[in-house]
């Protein structure tokens, strides 16, 4: 008889626990939803911060001054000038240099790894690229400033101690692994039957690569370039260290140029007190930067989706 009681007790116990369990089952998803919502809040926080302070900035500085003039003197005591154009040209010039390095080298690396290298070579080389991708940008900044710039100054006489060329090149090196691995993924997903078909018709490997594989993988390859540009635009430490803080509008790579990111660093670590126009200009520049990188990322996703060839 004793056993029956204990079974009854067990059932009772089970029932009392079931209540708690039912509540847990209801509460847990809600808690998890809240955790997942933090990422949404982060985006909302970024956008609202940027928009709020940017609106304050445009109360004091006109839209036409910001985008239409060419002088940037945020901390000048008399008549400070706020134009984003010097920063935009700086950003674009340095990104162009970076892409001039990253696109050919990255694409060639991808072709070698996906079309030419044997499995064992690929297994050896890929980790090296991953290491290159994992090095913190501050280390690249150090490298650009203390090594690449002095070397380039030996070669190019007019090169200044801080210039656009050296950080551009180093940034390109930093982006190579990204372009290479994304392009390689795209090329790897081209089915082998297409390569074999072309080879059977008598093409050489190079012709297969150029006429079959790359055209078939072009959406992924272009997307990797666009993501590379986005990375270059948002990169901060290399340019802050090696490119200086000249705010002149110039296209001369041997001169110091300031990018949008480097400007943000300068103003946040400088003397611009909270509430001044120079302080608000920081957010206007950051907002522009945010829009640029967001558009690039969306564009990359659009390209890889829209133009993907499905086999």
């Amino acid at each position: 008889m004793e056993k029956a009681i204990s079974v009854k007790a067990m059932i009772e116990e089970k029932k009392s626990k079931a209540g708690i369990r039912r509540i847990t089952e209801k509460v847990i998803p809600f808690i998890l939803f809240l955790l997942a919502f933090v990422s949404v809040l982060t985006t909302a926080g970024i956008i609202s911060t940027l928009v709020y302070e940017t609106v304050l900035f445009f109360r004091e500085v006109s839209f036409t001054e910001f985008f239409g003039t060419t002088e940037l003197k945020p901390l000048s005591p008399v008549e400070p000038k706020f134009s984003i154009l010097p920063l935009l040209t700086g950003t674009i010039m340095i990104s162009l240099v970076a892409m001039a390095v990253a696109v050919p080298v990255g694409l060639a690396t991808a072709v070698f790894l996906s079309e030419y290298a044997s499995d064992s070579t690929r297994k050896m080389l890929k980790p090296v690229l991953e290491v290159l991708a994992g090095i913190p940008t501050i280390v690249y900044g150090f490298f650009a400033f203390t090594f690449v710039t002095p070397v380039l100054r030996e070669l190019i006489p007019g090169l200044q101690a801080t210039n656009a060329l050296s950080p551009g090149i180093v940034m390109g090196i930093m982006i190579i692994p990204m372009v290479a691995s994304l392009s390689e993924d795209a090329m790897n997903s081209v089915p082998n039957v297409m390569r074999e078909g072309a080879l059977a018709l008598g093409s050489t490997k190079l012709e297969v690569t150029l006429r079959v594989v790359i055209p078939a993988a072009i959406s992924g390859i272009i997307a990797s370039f666009v993501l590379g540009v986005s990375r270059a635009i948002g990169e901060t430490m290399i340019v802050t260290i090696a490119s200086g803080s000249s705010k002149n509008l110039t296209f001369d790579l041997t001169q110091s140029m300031q990018t949008m990111t480097a400007y943000i660093v300068e103003v946040t670590s400088g003397d611009a007190a909270s509430g001044t126009t120079a302080y608000y200009s920081l957010y206007a520049v950051a907002f522009t930067l945010f829009i640029f990188t967001l558009l690039m990322n969306l564009l990359a996703r659009y390209i890889s989706r829209r133009y993907r060839e499905v086999y």
Binding site: T42, T43, I46, G234, I264, Y283, A286, L294, N297
Partner: peptide, 25 residues
């Protein structure tokens, strides 16, 4: 898909912008 897209986009935001968010908030 909204939360997923949002996370993908966050991954592409430059780190300096996160710095500004941290500075403000």
């Amino acid at each position: 898909s909204f939360i997923q897209t949002n996370i993908n986009n966050l991954a592409g935001v430059p780190s300096i912008v996160f710095g500004l968010l941290g500075l403000t908030v």
